[in-house]
């Protein structure tokens, strides 16, 4: 029940005042970028990185492409982000 309320608040939050990016846009971008950095910069395990970048509620679902070194995230089909590994010195960047 608590999770459902929080998700509802996130969806409502998409219409709130403040900066233009909604909470769901922030959450998907955060997870894409930090999951990319955790996997391809830090070199931690996928299990560690999925836990490290999870938020409560965990609505930003990731898709990891290890061959291209990219991480895409999506929430409720409407919000999403993509981060790519740029190189061993400059790490990951959000598209």
């Amino acid at each position: 029940m608590r999770k459902a309320c929080t998700i509802l608040m996130l969806l409502v939050g998409a219409c709130r005042d403040g900066y233009s990016a909604s909470d769901l846009q922030l959450v998907t971008a955060y997870r894409a970028k930090e999951l990319c950095s955790c996997l391809f910069v830090t070199g931690q395990s996928e299990e560690f990185c999925l836990r490290y970048t999870s938020e409560d509620p965990n609505v930003a679902l990731p898709r990891i492409d290890r061959s291209r070194k990219t991480v895409s995230t999506a929430a409720f089909l409407l919000w999403g982000a993509r981060a790519r590994f740029d190189g061993p010195r400059t790490g990951c960047v959000l598209d």
Binding site: Y19, S20, Q25, L26, A29, K33, L94
Partner: peptide, 17 residues
Amino acid sequence: SAQASSVLAMLYGEGRR
């Protein structure tokens, strides 16, 4: 409110590029 945060908007929102 994450949406009111300047630093989150800079890193992950409209400021990120």
